[in-house]
Design a protein around this nucleic acid. Structure first.
Lengths: 196, 196
DNA sequence: TATGACTGTCAGTACTTACTGACATCATAT
DNA sequence: ATATGATGTCAGTAAGTACTGACAGTCATA
């Protein structure tokens, strides 16, 4: 049960909803279960949120981690391919892990939840733009081979997306050792492939 | 509705179940809906399959394509890195696309269905082994740099997994990009990175 | 002490769902 | 012509669901 003294009733309900729906799907969990997991009565749930659907939508608004990747990059890039790709990869996995449960919900019930998919795919799209532009800029500096920047960016993103997806249901809240290994090696691969 | 004259009643029920459950999830679709989509009565569904759960399990046994990658590779590899990676990539996407709906079901309701995950979403251990061994053999032939073959194989697999996952749902994150384009460019990247 | 915000209990509604039994229909094969 | 097998109709059960209303308890603050 979600600890009672630290959070408000509403937050406890929202967190319980996220946890359970991410695990069992929207139709796989009842409002009674959610209320019980929050240590509250079903009545309170409906009094405060009106409907199950609204509970989930509110939960998404409240807990979706929406910080943009754009700012991070513009400030921290040092224009060394391997260093920058490492930063990008780590930042990506960090954000994806924060939104892990939202992404699980989006995968299971995205069709039922208007706007869910768009928001969970916001980061990947931003990332693609940023990374494509980064590759182009590096290319102009002569630090990168000149080819298809967009497709290279996509390949890098999808590689990391695949890695993330593979660990999605492992339920490991903290980054695993193998993920770090993967990041190091995969960045090496791309750095070697794209260096002139 | 699934065409009536070409398939048996049971097959029509199984196909309807796969279609609807892949779209809406196990708990999101009723037996009445499934029967209607198959052009049959709900009674027939229960007469022939006993339960909704058994219907889905039977559907999986009937329509899940087993992994035949091992054989393909051993027969067709020509020990040219780019050529072989192209074959591997195309074979992978071919098999994944065949199992597309099973994978969707596995993602949405894998927790409820024993054995489902292992057979679909979790990457064919087979492919990883085959690719790792391929990299090692290429390395011994002097056609590949000597580094971490296992991580390189994982990176390549996850890159393709990410690409596949991105196209899984009708609502694609990067709709303008064709799969074939991606395969060509991504294989080039890896070929360049791993060539001595 | 009294007020108001918040929560719980309980009984209940209207609906859906998985699943069943009794009986009828219909085509095909012998 | 009749037996067989697969299917449909219909009525129904037991359980679960989201959600509500009436009423009472708790607790901090005015």
């Amino acid at each position: 049960m979600i600890s009672s003294n630290k959070f408000s009733s509403n937050d406890r309900l929202l967190m319980a909803a996220i946890d359970l729906i991410a695990e069992k799907g929207y139709n796989g969990v009842s409002t009674r279960e959610i209320a019980a997991a929050a240590g509250l009565s079903e009545k309170t749930l409906f009094r405060n949120f009106g409907s199950k659907q609204n509970l989930l939508e509110t939960a998404f608004e409240r807990f979706h981690y929406g910080e943009t990747m754009k700012n991070l990059f513009n400030e921290k890039l040092v224009w060394d391919l391997e260093t920058d790709l490492l930063l990008i990869s780590r930042t990506y996995h960090d954000i994806m892990n924060r939104n892990r449960k939202m992404i699980q919900i989006s995968l299971k019930d995205g069709a039922k939840l208007p706007g869910f998919r768009e928001k969970t795919s916001k980061h990947p799209q931003q990332l693609k733009e940023v990374l494509t532009n980064y590759f182009k800029a590096m290319s102009e500096k002569g630090k990168l081979i000149e080819t298809n920047s967009e497709m290279q960016a996509l390949s890098f993103i999808w590689m990391n997306y695949g890695a993330f997806m593979n660990n999605l249901d492992a339920d490991t809240t903290f980054p695993t050792v193998s993920l770090e290994e993967f990041i190091l090696e995969s960045v090496k691969i791309f750095a070697r492939a794209l260096t002139p």
